[in-house]
Structures are given as C-alpha cells and as structure tokens.
Design a protein around this nucleic acid. Structure first.
Length: 284
DNA sequence: CCTAGAACCTGCGAGC
DNA sequence: TGCTCGCAGGTTCTAG
C-alpha cells in the first residue's frame, strides 16, 4: 500500500522516535511477519537484543534500521497494509499487531509492526560496504535519490519490450513508484499506461520522470497519501494527499484538465485510472 | 534470458 | 441478516 512518500514519512518518524535507542526485547506475534528472516522468529528476536539502532535509511519502498557497531540492519517492508507505530507501552495491542520491540530506556514507548494482510514484514540482514542490506541489492535507486541515473533508466526503457506502467512498477528499474503514483505521473505526462517503453524518446522519459518526482515530492510535503485508517505514519497520523490526486480512484469523475470522464480498467489484478482523451492508447 | 499472470493474505462494502 | 463477490496502495514465483 505505501509507496515512496509514505515510506519516507515513516523513516523520518523512526529517525525521530527510535534512532539511538537500544533494543531490550522483541516479541514476534505472527511468524509470517518475519518470514524473510530465514532463521526464524526466535533467532530474529535474539539477534536484536542489546543492539543500538542507528540512523534509519530508505531505498524505494524498503527501509532499514542499522544496528550500530555491526554490519547488519533490520529491513522493513510495509507491503500493502503495514504500519510502524511508536506507541505507549500501556496502549492496547492493535488487532493486527505482529511484532513488538521494546527498548532499554525510560521513554515509555515501544515500536510496533502492525499489518492486516501480512504482505510486509521485518528481517535482519548483513549490509554491503555501502550500508545496503544485501537482499535488496537488486532494487534500483528511487527518483528522489540524487544518484538516480536518468539516462540509465531511459536506456532500460528502450531495451525492454514491455509497457510503461509495468516498467514504472518494476523496482529493479526504478523504485518507490506504486500503482497510485504511476497513474498520477502518467496522467500528468499525458501518457497511456500501455504505451510500449521502446517508443520512449529521451525528452518523453525526462518529462515522465519529472512528473513522477513532482507528484511524489508534493505527497511527501503533506505527509504521504492516505485513504483511510489503514495507512498512518509512525505516530498514527494520517496524511492528507489523497484529496489532491488527479487520476487514482477518480473513475467517472471529470478529468481535471479536459473534463472528460475518467476511466478505470482492470490491469494486473488491480486498476489503472486514466483520462481517455488526454491519454490516448497506443495504436495497434 | 524475458514477460505476463497468478499466488500470497485479511477485511470491507456492495449487491443479492 | 447473512452470504458471495470484487476490490485493496506490493512482491515474488512460475509458466510459457
């Protein structure tokens, strides 16, 4: 569910409320939430104990908490419905609380991983010399990363024989973009989601990347998009960006540019929203 | 090697 | 009221 802006909001919350605290105890309430930690729940809990959390980092939709004075980090992915919450100890357990991390201090708060659909989870991994958890080495940089390479992305588009929305969601080409921001960027760029990537010219790629950056930066500025109580940031506050979406979820509503009713089409077990006039489907 | 589609989960709202 | 169906923001595995 959360895309780059939402995950970055969570990362900032962790930096504020969790960094520099030492883990005292970890409780795994649902084994599926640590399934990426191959050695299992007990091993996960054991290995965190006594370590101090460094500065949280993020790449695309993944975020991780380095363990200081080790070459390891706790990797987190929120999946479709995951939340990382900092709660008072006495606050009642959430219905879908999966993991609880307590700290060796007197601040009175704990870190909770809550996830209804359990597509997300936490795991511990070795980090590469540049500090990246080894299992996400294949994830591309995201478009808000200063080291994102526009030319490399363009060449990848030219090389692929697929369509543009599939490419935008391919985390090994460009990370952090999900179904919402893909539809938003495509609407802004007036590009149909099924346009073949091989037809992209350098200016068109540049324009699309620019719109992706603009829409995600705007979402970040208001604390991430949210639809309902399912997504809240690290302290339980919802974002407000959903009010300014131009494409996603607007089936039947007038296009904000030309007034034509927006369309929704089933696509890859989900939906694509677009303006049938501004975003003409490719020929053939 | 590459790409498209299904599978993995739970819950909610709509329609019957 | 209660059932079934469709749908939900992601990733990964498998079939072709």
């Amino acid at each position: 569910m959360p895309e780059l802006p939402e995950v970055e909001v969570v990362r900032r919350g962790l930096e504020r409320w969790v960094a520099q605290r030492t883990v005292s105890d970890t409780e795994v309430l649902h084994p599926r939430a640590v399934r990426r930690h191959v050695a299992g729940a007990d091993d996960f809990a054991h290995r965190l104990k006594g370590h101090r959390i460094g500065t949280p980092s993020r790449r695309g939709k993944y975020l991780w908490l380095p363990l200081e004075e080790t070459h390891q980090a706790v990797l987190a992915h929120l999946g479709m419905s995951g939340q990382l919450l900092v709660q008072q100890h006495e606050f009642p357990d959430e219905k879908h609380l999966r993991i609880r991390v307590r700290f060796a201090d007197t601040l009175g708060t704990e870190l909770r991983f809550v996830d209804q659909r359990t597509f997300g989870g936490l795991s511990l991994h070795d980090t590469t010399p540049d500090g990246l958890p080894d299992v996400i080495a294949h994830i591309a940089r995201d478009p808000l990363d200063p080291l994102f390479d526009d030319e490399l992305f363009h060449q990848a588009l030219r090389r692929k024989r697929t369509t543009i929305k599939r490419a935008l969601l391919d985390q090994s080409l460009i990370s952090g973009v999900g179904n919402i921001y893909a539809d938003e960027a495509l609407w802004r760029a007036r590009v149909h989601y099924e346009r073949p990537t091989a037809t992209f010219t350098r200016p068109r790629t540049a324009e699309l990347l620019g719109h992706a950056r603009d829409v995600m930066t705007a979402a970040l500025d208001v604390g991430g998009t949210s639809f309902d109580s399912l997504y809240v940031n690290v302290n339980g506050e919802s974002g407000y960006f959903d009010r300014s979406l131009d494409a996603y979820g607007r089936e039947g509503l007038p296009c904000r540019r030309c007034g034509t009713p927006m369309k929704r089409q089933a696509w890859m077990n989900r939906s694509s929203y677009f303006c049938p006039k501004c975003q003409k489907p490719p020929r053939g």
